[in-house]
Design a protein around this nucleic acid. Structure first.
Length: 426
DNA sequence: TCTGGGGTCCTAGGACCC
DNA sequence: TCTGGGGTCCTAGGACCC
């Protein structure tokens, strides 16, 4: 009996947001379409029943491209690009607002369709998943002399099921591990299926640029390029010690094993959230003093929204943090750990207000965020009462007056003394 | 016409305790 | 008072991903 092979699939929906929009507006098929920005550019229904769509040409704002159709990508537009820049490259491309409700709906549909064939699924966001195919009936069968035949048929069945359930296409990579499958799913995109065995590493993986490895981002990619390493094969030819000297023990060793296609991570079907946050970028940069009222309102709203998220998902958190991005794009964070976890909007806002006091607010702000971390499940009142009080590890942060957060002066009044510089408070 | 929003994980220094 | 080592928690920043 031949040994049982581990088969992991990575499934990636093709241009997901844009493809969902095309289901709704089939007349846009084949056109350059970009998804992104605010709610402003909703299509307009004309009297003759046709729709008028906004184009990128007149866009003004700070949005980015979340997805572009393949036709739009031909103009050099890709996700993450500022919409202003995208407008330069493709002024006549159609611009649609993001509709997360719709995308979440289709996300649930495609994942359910996969689960009918293979139930061991790891969520990697709204449009991609890993699937463990090892124990799916048929996956271990060779077809002729090809050990990939059985699992290829299983993967094709998954793709068919997704198409039937959603009308959308996806690309799938199947290999012995998550690292290689993630790379493989991109090899024949869109609407492709690539099955690789470990012995195909030198021919199929090593010629690719290092950036194709999930975990090598812009920084590590640039550093490798500076060292004369462009392809995964060139990385694989490096001594591990040499990489460790340059990238640190952990990352250096990982680079070495990744380039050799080694990855033992399991497919994880559930993981508890670690933090929840809300943040917003303003239409224009705001100043702590001159725009105090607006900033205070935004801050309170962000705290209320995280609190709402926590309560809806039944979590409480002990570490409250803020994030600020200045006009020069520099970002700072401050956080504060409370003696007890909470999901109360007032307590969250109070703690966030404490954090804010530790930041120098002389530069204008473009973004504000509120985060709650160190999450746990709320204890029932009864269980709490039965417990001895938790001894505080350090003096609790001076608790603001019980007056209620609404009256707290979060941002300085005109004429207030200058705020202390950030970073000095610990 | 620079660069959204929601996450995870890692590192590193200092506090604090034994 | 000086000299330690180990372990955990807290905080800040940064890389990376979807």
């Amino acid at each position: 009996m031949p040994p049982r092979r581990r088969w992991i699939a990575h499934l990636d929906m093709d241009a997901f947001y844009a493809s969902v929009e095309l289901l709704r507006y089939p007349e846009l098929a084949g056109q350059a379409v970009v998804i992104g920005g605010g709610r402003r550019h909703q299509p307009e229904l004309l009297e003759d029943g046709t729709r008028r769509f906004a184009t990128l040409r007149h866009y003004a704002g700070r949005g980015v491209v979340t997805t572009a159709t393949y036709a739009a990508r031909d103009y050099g537009v890709h996700s993450g690009m500022g919409l202003m820049k995208a407008a330069q490259r493709a002024p006549d491309a159609i611009l649609l607002p993001t509709d997360f409700e719709a995308y979440r709906h289709y996300s649930r549909l495609f994942k359910a369709a996969v689960a009918e064939v293979a139930p061991v699924i790891e969520d990697r966001g709204i449009d991609e998943i890993y699937i463990d195919l090892t124990d799916v009936p048929g996956a271990q069968e060779a077809v002729g002399h090809d050990p990939r035949g059985g699992v290829r048929a299983v993967a094709q069945e998954i793709r068919n099921n997704v198409k039937r359930a959603t009308g959308l296409s996806c690309s799938v990579g199947v290999t012995p591990n998550k690292l290689l499958s993630k790379i493989a799913s991109e090899l024949d995109k869109p609407d492709g299926l690539t099955v690789l065995t470990a012995d195909e590493l030198p021919t199929r993986i090593w010629p690719l640029p290092v950036r194709r490895i999930n975990g090598i981002g812009p920084k590590a990619g640039a550093k490798l390029k500076g060292l004369g390493i462009d392809t995964i094969g060139e990385l694989a030819a490096c001594e591990q010690d040499w990489l460790v000297e340059r990238f640190g023990r952990s990352y250096g060793a990982w680079l070495h094993s990744a380039s050799h296609g080694i990855d033992d991570r399991p497919v994880v079907t559930y993981s508890e959230p670690v933090s929840m946050s809300r943040e917003t970028t303003f239409d224009r940069d705001l100043h702590a003093v001159r725009d105090r009222a607006a900033l205070t309102a935004i801050f309170t709203d962000l705290a209320a929204r995280v609190a709402e998220d926590l309560q809806r998902k039944r979590f409480v958190g002990r570490t409250i943090g803020i994030k600020l991005r200045f006009e020069d794009f520099k970002t700072v964070t401050r956080d504060l750990t409370l003696p007890e976890p909470t999901a109360d909007p007032l307590l969250i806002r109070q703690a966030a207000g404490q954090c804010l006091k530790r930041v120098d607010l002389s530069r204008r702000l473009r973004l504000l965020g509120v985060r709650v971390g160190a999450l746990s499940r709320p204890k029932a009142e009864a269980a709490r009462a039965a417990e001895p009080p938790r001894p505080a590890r350090r003096p609790p942060a001076s608790t603001p007056p019980a007056a209620g957060a609404a009256e707290l002066p979060l941002f300085p009044e005109l004429g207030d003394p200058p705020l202390p510089l950030g970073g000095g408070a610990h």
